[in-house]
């Protein structure tokens, strides 16, 4: 267990000694800022002419999931693919560290980075709170952020597993993004009356977010779903590293 923390801490620090970490932080906050600004202007225009209600936290939390889907592959692509390409994995695999500790450590390091990222985005709800009367309803903000944390945990685990499959970081990025987009769109494949409709809707990670956490509902089924995907990703990553040993 100690090894997990050592690896996680190193991975976390590495995001701040490489351009990728700063780039993701900057782009995430910048693009979110643009979207929020745009939404505010629209809401302002509407409120002038139609007396519409003031904007709520949806304009911030709504786009955050989309941005995570594109950011997380950039955060996970390097975790194991980079080690395999550079050859540094050999020394990690000959250190007294279990394969699952390595995978969980890598995942935890990335998760800590996403925690920082999400913490920084809190400036937007705070700003909105000051802009509108009578202030923000914090319930949906809390459930929304909880949902985003769960989504991040799940997507990061899938990203780590996919990174373990590749030596090439670009390939890892592309495949991770493709898998995310598939899991995001999967429920749209389900036509009415399709017998697999229920399964497909369950697999869709966007559904669990937008139908519950986003609306201020803390949904047990959603929590179970995200934690299961996290465990699945970490397990697959571990199995891939183990099988890599056997293939040599």
């Amino acid at each position: 267990m100690r090894a997990i923390w050592i690896i996680a801490r190193r991975e976390f620090r590495r995001y701040f000694t490489s351009p990728v970490g700063y780039l993701v932080l900057f782009l995430y906050l910048f693009i979110l800022g643009l979207i929020v600004n745009n939404s505010l202007q629209q809401a302002y225009a509407f409120s002038l002419f139609q007396g519409a209600p003031p904007p709520n936290s949806d304009i911030i939390i709504g786009p955050m999931l989309t941005l995570l889907v594109f950011s997380i592959p950039a955060l996970t692509m390097r975790l194991l693919a980079g080690e395999q390409a550079a050859g540094t994995l050999e020394l990690l695999l000959t250190a007294p560290v279990r394969d699952w500790e390595l995978i969980v450590g890598k995942w935890l390091g990335a998760f800590l980075f996403v925690l920082v990222l999400l913490a920084l985005t809190l400036i937007y709800p705070l700003a909105l709170h000051l802009l509108i009367e009578p202030g923000l309803d914090w319930g949906p903000v809390i459930s929304g952020y909880l949902g985003l944390l769960l989504v991040s945990a799940a997507l990061l685990a899938l990203g780590v597993a996919i990174s373990a499959m590749f030596r090439n970081q670009v390939a890892a990025f592309a495949v991770t993004l493709a898998v995310f987009l598939f899991l995001w769109m999967v429920s749209s494949l389900a036509g009415a009356g399709n017998p697999s409709e229920g399964v497909l809707r369950y697999l869709d990670f966007g559904n669990h977010f937008y139908n519950a956490f986003f609306r201020g509902v803390i949904d047990l089924q959603g929590i179970v779903y995200y934690l299961s995907v996290t465990a699945f990703g970490l397990l697959v990553g571990t199995v891939i590293i183990e099988s890599r040993r056997w293939r040599g």
Binding site: L91, T94, A95
Partner: peptide, 30 residues
């Protein structure tokens, strides 16, 4: 693995770490 020290052929190291930090990382792992 606790009892073996290993120098792989053409050793791969983390270029973005300092010598001290690298040894500290490996030492902590061990």
């Amino acid at each position: 693995r606790r009892r073996v020290g290993y120098l792989p052929e053409n050793i791969a190291l983390y270029d973005d770490m300092t010598v001290w930090d690298y040894l500290a990382f490996m030492g902590q792992l061990r």
